[in-house]
Structures are given as C-alpha cells and as structure tokens.
Design a protein around this nucleic acid. Structure first.
Lengths: 129, 129
DNA sequence: CTGAATCCAATGTGATACTG
DNA sequence: CAGTATCACATTGGATTCAG
C-alpha cells in the first residue's frame, strides 16, 4: 500500500496523446492512474504530473469529483491537507480503461504507420512513374 | 448486409456527451458505429448525423482515415461517389469501444446522481442546522 | 454529390502571480 | 499546502457559402 508514484508520468504508460480513446479531459486518465493504488495528496499528484499547472490539475480533479469518480477529503489541521481517492465508481472505470490502453499498446505501431503513410501521400507519385 | 442506419444517432445509443470515455474527436465514436455494418457513402452518413455540419463530419472522417481506422474510396463516374469503410484496425477498436459504452450504460445513473449532488451542494446546509 | 473556404464562437489548455 | 485569479493561446466545433 502507498506504493510510490512514478516520478514522471510523461515517460511511460500508454501515450495518451496518440491514443484515440480518451477519458474525460486531457489529464483525467493519468490522474486516475495516480490514484489507482490509494489516496494521494494534491502535492503528491503534482510530482508525477509536474508538467500540468495547478489550475489545470485542479480543474481535472474537480471534473472527476463532479462525476463521482473521485472523492476529495479535507483534513483540518495546522496546515491544510487534502486527499483525493477513487470512489467505487472511479475504480470501476479502471477496467475499460485498461482495455483501451491495451488496445492502444497493441496497435500503436499501426497507428503511427498509417499516419506517416497518410501524411506523406500526395508528395510523391505512388505509381512510381 | 447493408443494414439501414438509424435515422438519428442523437436519439439512441450511449449518450457520448455524458460518457467520460471518448474516442477521438466529438463525433468519431458515432461515425465508427455508422460504419460498423459495412461501407457507407458520405450522404448516407449525413442522415443519422444530420446535426453535424459537413465540414465537421469531413474533418472527423479525415482524422479517422489518417489514423488508419477508416478507408476512403473514390469511385469515378458521372457523379462523384465516395465510400467510407472500417479497416481491420478500425474494426479492432469496436471491442474496447463496446466495453466503454457498456460501462457508460451501466453507470450512467450514478454519474448523473453524482453531478446533481455535486452541483447542488453548497446551496443548502447539509447539516440541516 | 462531395466536400472546400471562410469566418466566428466555444472550449480547452497553459503560465504566472497571488491568497487563506 | 492547496489552491484561486487573471490573462493569453491553441484547438475544436459550427453556420454559411461556394466549387469541382
């Protein structure tokens, strides 16, 4: 429990910018993955997602909270402390998400090839005349 | 084969505007569903998707073509005729898409409840004091 | 018939600085 | 610590009009 988060989500995992299957806003999928193994504090999330500005990260979390996928808990104390965690509903989306990521990983190369072929077309004569 | 398309995609199917799982651009999922049962002409697609302007529909199709999910075929003739159909790669995405739609249908009500609860909060005192 | 061109609105994303 | 405020920018979505 409380497994360490990856140091930078942008190094690994399914390249969500390529994946045509997307979850909520641009960062929602990554946020959900960060919460997969238990509750996290805002500042903990900011480490692997350091290239997301606090405003955008907040917006993503709020959106997930609004949809009931994430619960936000404020702990009173000398310094503010807030924890985010997946609700049961949020956990239930992990499965289709994993399926989508599996598809993306499996067909990642095909997507890239198709793009290159498509983008390159029209600039050279495919008949080779 | 050549089953009729639904008359209006906006009446039925998974409400993709609510579903946090999205495929490509706003209409990609609906377009893919229209192509599920065989090739379709542009004007055929425009019927169930009549609330999508031709420009946007074209853009969506082009994007799918670029990713190798859809093949576009032009048939020469007295009047232009163009057909779109799913490639094998395009077909392969039907499965994770179905999983995502199943999730959405299953949890559709929970999402709505969560939104209402969230949007309504703050306007009345939950402690009932 | 199949889109391309143009223009515009809405939304999403982001950097920076500041606050309880 | 955990955000909010503000401004700016990019992308997307759309209506309308026009062309091959």
């Amino acid at each position: 429990m409380r497994e360490p988060l990856p140091s930078d989500m942008f190094d690994e995992l399914c390249p969500s910018s390529l994946n045509p299957i997307r979850f909520g806003d641009k960062w929602a999928a990554l946020v959900i993955r960060c919460l997969e193994h238990g509750p996290r504090r805002f500042s903990e999330l900011r480490v692997p997602l350091r290239r997301v500005s606090p405003k955008v990260l907040t917006a993503s979390l709020r959106s997930l909270e609004r949809d009931g996928l994430v619960r936000r808990t404020v702990y009173a104390g000398p310094s503010p402390r807030v924890e985010y965690e997946l609700t049961p509903l949020g956990r239930s989306i992990l499965e289709p998400m994993a399926a989508a990521c599996a598809w993306a990983e499996e067909h990642w190369a095909e997507l890239l090839e198709a793009r290159e072929a498509h983008d390159g077309a029209g600039r050279l004569d495919p008949t080779g005349s």
